[in-house]
Amino acid sequence: MPLPRHPLPGRALSRRALLSTAGAAGLLALAAPPALARPRSRPGTPTANAIRLIPLQGAVNVRDLGGHGTYDGRRVRYGLVHRGDHLGKLTDADVAVLGGLGLGRVIDFRIPLEVRYDGADRLPSGVLGVSRPVTDNGLYGQLLAAIGSRDPVRQEQMLGGGRAAAFMTEVYRTFVTSAANREQLGTTLRELAAPGAAPVLYHCTSGKDRTGWESWLLLTLLGVPERAATDDYLASNTFRAAYDARVREGLKQSGMMQDPDLIVPLQEVRQEYLDTALAEVRAGYGGLFRYVTEGLGLDLRTLAALRERLVG
């Protein structure tokens, strides 16, 4: 979930359960040859070894999506796909760092309200910025209203008692149920499969929910084991922890919130959030294969092209 700028700012479903019987053979042939039963890669290798954070002063969760091992002993190529939080507060030095990545385009999943609040991306010269909003189901506006009220009773009524976490699970459901969201996410994946395309960075505000779901999908389609793809998703908690703590402290010190811990469920990624989206995939499509092909519009040729381009 996106959070205002400072000072305002379980268990995963099994891969087998997510894949429909009809589509499993086609997807697994692309994602995990020759067999899931005897992966040649080392599933116990810590995911942290694969994650390459791009250190910036104005963003805290920008990283290369490469380095993860696949079921057939290969690795996702570094330097082609990057994920991140918003780029509206980058310093000149940060822009120079991004310039060294050779990016062709930066895809922004934020809605217009977020862009107005945090600012448009600062990008190197020659990099195309693409607005491709994925809805947050109105949560950003509700969060601003709760914090802006300065009313601890209203904030407790809106965010306490498990309500903040419940908001988040509803947002994750929309990644699957919203046709507009599916179109934006699917278009991005299709573009990543284009042969010879320049490196891409996609992001939302915090780089953890919309960006996290898209990244989990991409890694899974590339044949990265589910545990490693999930670890990459959960790693946002590590990279964002210090910054998010400063946001909460700023809210308390400024008198905006008496209990800033109310927003912790909005700042974090959690297994239960990811599980909610995956359960919605199963409920709506019967499995991951139908969600990807029918919901996101990726045909078998595109799935093969993704792997051909991004796995070495």
Rank of each mutant, 00 (worst) to 15 (best):
M168V: 13
A12C: 03
G212D: 07
A37D: 15
P43N: 10
V127F: 13
G88K: 01
N181A: 15
A277R: 02
Y291M: 03
A145D: 15
G66I: 06
R110C: 04
L159W: 03
A235S: 11
R116Y: 00
D261W: 00
R282Y: 04
R132P: 07
M158T: 12
R190P: 00
Y243C: 08
D151M: 09
S131Q: 10
R122C: 10
R38C: 13
T302Q: 04
G69M: 09
A277V: 10
H6C: 08
G119Y: 05
V106M: 00
T91F: 07
K89R: 15
R182I: 11
E191A: 10
R74I: 06
L310Y: 01
L251E: 08
G100F: 06
V311F: 08
G69F: 08
L219H: 05
R150D: 02
D232S: 12
G69D: 14
G284Y: 01
K252E: 02
D231E: 15
V60Q: 11
T188S: 13
V247S: 04
G255N: 09
V134H: 05
L36S: 04
P7I: 07
A35N: 15
C204N: 01
L143F: 11
L30N: 12
T47F: 02
E249S: 15
P43Q: 09
Q253K: 15
H86V: 00
S206Y: 00
F239S: 13
S178R: 07
A242L: 12
Q157W: 09
N181Q: 06
H6G: 04
P9V: 11
V95T: 15
G104I: 14
S149H: 06
E249V: 09
D108C: 13
M1V: 13
G312W: 08
G129K: 13
T47P: 05
V62T: 11
M168C: 13
A198V: 11
Y285N: 06
T187V: 08
G104M: 07
L278E: 06
P225K: 01
P55G: 10
E191I: 01
R122H: 11
L219E: 00
W216V: 05
S215V: 00
T293P: 00
A229W: 01
S41I: 09
S20A: 14
D72G: 06
Y285V: 01
R11H: 10
T188D: 03
E183V: 09
S14K: 12
V247D: 00
P34E: 01
G119W: 03
R227I: 04
L303T: 06
L27K: 02
Q267D: 05
T91E: 13
L192T: 07
D94F: 11
E226Y: 10
A165D: 15
A304I: 05
V97F: 08
H82M: 15
L80A: 09
G23P: 01
F175V: 03
G148M: 03
R270A: 13
